[in-house]
């Protein structure tokens, strides 16, 4: 009961602090710079219509394909790395062996390290090392994504209900067989679902890599923004939305087929 009371008190204090902080805002002053409203209007007007010339559409298509290609390659590499790393990190791969726990700790640390650096930072590092190549784009995305996926895979594998596993052990299954016929099938739908979600994120991230000079939708968006060609920016943004929505639809279908 005392915990509950002090928690409520804390909530109250935090609300009061927030309310007080609002008094510090200069509401009448220039929150938006003077040219802001006009710029915003121009940006919105540029949507009607966006740039639809055949030449630019062709360029958009090529850029979309490039972004898609990078994200597909990156998520593939990420999954390939994340599966063994996640297995190690979950500790289910080597429960019997004495090496299981240290391996799990090491794997978790490594996964944590590679995902704590943002893909954009990885990209800058790889641009220095490898130049503006496809390898740079793919590695910069694959590393943090492997870190995230591996961590999630490990948690999902750990969180399956224990009872069916116990029943499998009782019917004489070895630890590996318990994994194969129990843990993996129970965790798999969630692992797949999350991988798809991460694939969507990879498309967005691949586009963002354009800001360090890697070709694709993001690079084209940046070029058009530089020239204040908002109608082109819109065309490119719509293409990006199309890509993400298409992956979403695909993943919904795969998940539905998997469940039925």
């Amino acid at each position: 009961m005392r915990v509950l009371e002090s928690r409520r008190l804390l909530t109250l204090i935090l609300f009061a602090a927030f309310a007080w902080s609002l008094s510090g805002v200069d509401w009448l002053g220039p929150m938006v710079h003077t040219g802001g409203p006009q710029s915003l209007l121009r940006f919105i007007q540029a949507l009607f219509p966006p740039e639809l010339s055949p030449a630019f559409l062709k360029l958009t298509l090529a850029a979309s394909f490039q972004t898609l290609a990078y994200s597909v390659a990156a998520i593939t590499v990420a999954v390939l790395v994340a599966v063994p790393m996640g297995l190690l990190a979950s500790g289910v791969a080597a429960r019997s062996a004495r090496t299981g726990l240290p391996a799990a700790v090491a794997a978790r640390f490594l996964l944590g390290a590679i995902r704590s650096v943002h893909e954009l930072v990885w990209a800058v590092l790889f641009v220095y090392a490898l130049g503006l190549s496809s390898a740079t784009a793919i590695l910069a995305l694959a590393l943090p994504y492997a870190g995230i996926l591996g961590r999630i895979y490990a948690d999902l594998l750990n969180d399956v209900p224990e009872e069916p596993l116990r029943a499998l052990r009782a019917s004489g299954a070895s630890p590996f067989q318990v994994f194969l016929f129990g843990r993996l099938p129970m965790a798999f739908p969630d692992m797949l679902s999350y991988s798809f979600y991460r694939f969507e994120c990879a498309i967005r991230s691949a586009a963002i890599l354009g800001f360090v000079g890697i070709p694709g939708l993001g690079y084209q968006i940046q070029l058009s923004l530089h020239d204040i060609l908002f109608d082109q920016v819109w065309t490119l943004l719509v293409a990006l939305v199309f890509l993400v929505v298409a992956v979403d639809l695909w993943s919904t279908r795969v998940r539905r087929d998997l469940v039925s």
């Binding site: 009872e163 029943a167 009782a170 019917s171 004489g172 099938p185």
Partner: peptide, 16 residues
């Protein structure tokens, strides 16, 4: 497993 087999209350099958 060849000597004893156990059925649990909740059957404990793998639903997936």
């Amino acid at each position: 497993s060849q000597l004893v087999g156990l059925v649990h209350q909740q059957y404990d099958l793998v639903p997936h």
